[in-house]
Design a protein around this nucleic acid. Structure first.
Lengths: 158, 158
DNA sequence: CACCATTCGTTCACCTTTCAACTTCTTAGG
DNA sequence: CCTAAGAAGTTGAAAGGTGAACGAATGGTG
């Protein structure tokens, strides 16, 4: 049985919007990464520091952190090992579930965070937020919201 | 002399828009990548096939292709080696500049492209384009345009 | 013309990510 | 309880990415 249908190609407007979106993402990632380099941090490092610093007791379970930062457990494990060696975080056993581990933000990690955050925020402003009007930013957010919801609902499906 | 100024933190709206943007990008990349996997292609592969198929004589210089796909020459060189082994492209000497090489789309590469494109477009629709109204997509595009321009102007600066 | 800075693309050594296998512990069912 | 299914996290090997260094070719300048 035939299930093929004519492909629904993108219209010019759609294609243009799509390509811009992809391009912005790649270039933006590149710039933000570059602006963090002087501090010897990657965006992944920074993201993890943010999550930890916003968590109760400055700690998170490995699995939760992996889910929150959208990466595999394996990748996170290697990543945390590196950050541990750099003194930014430390592993700590979990009493209630002895399979589990916490990643805990160290004093050093917190200081690094506080030192770097202003620069990173400035970078986000310079390359993104400050380049569009508050109204446009709001429109952008409104447009992305349904997409974010859809994608969240797709996480780890077939 | 003191050059520090109070950090311009993001407002709640700004932060929310920003985080959504980052999140969408990561999840979207993940989904598109996943939808290409059954065809044994990565987005990088696909992107290169698109660029080549849209070029005159189905060929591009390495440097131009690297610039177009926003990756380092080194990375592209490895990437093309892999794609060459997969039979999708082939390297060809450049007559007018004997330092140079062309990456040329092969017959196989073209067929792969034509086979995969409808699926990829469907994927882009499913996870992005079709989730927002044409008006919202247009707003999105309008909001991103100045950002894209800014970032293009930053390419390879200090 | 001869020179030297520059460009083109590859390579090497090193780091990061992926994937599957593995250990340890928890938990639901009989 | 005991067992089997499954979750938490790590590990190690293989694949992919980075950045500096390199050889070959080009092209503007004196």
């Amino acid at each position: 049985m035939e299930t093929e249908t004519a492909p629904q190609w993108l219209t010019d407007e759609e294609q243009c919007a799509w390509r811009t979106h992809v391009e912005v993402n790649r270039m933006l990632t590149y710039q933000l990464e570059k602006d963090l380099q002087p501090f010897n941090l990657t965006m992944n490092d920074y993201d993890i520091l943010v999550h930890l610093s916003e968590s109760e007791d400055l700690r998170m379970r490995m699995s939760d952190l992996a889910a929150a930062t959208l990466q595999s457990k394996s990748r996170l494990s290697h990543q945390i090992t590196r950050m541990e060696n750099a003194g930014l975080v430390r592993r700590e056993n979990c009493e209630s579930d002895r399979r589990g581990l916490y990643t805990v933000l160290t004093e050093d990690g917190m200081e690094t965070m506080q030192k770097v955050a202003p620069h990173h925020v400035a970078s986000v402003r310079r390359h993104f937020v400050d380049l569009v009007s508050p109204e446009a930013l709001c429109e952008l957010h409104k447009a992305l919201t349904p997409i974010a919801e859809h994608l969240r609902s797709q996480r780890g499906k077939p």
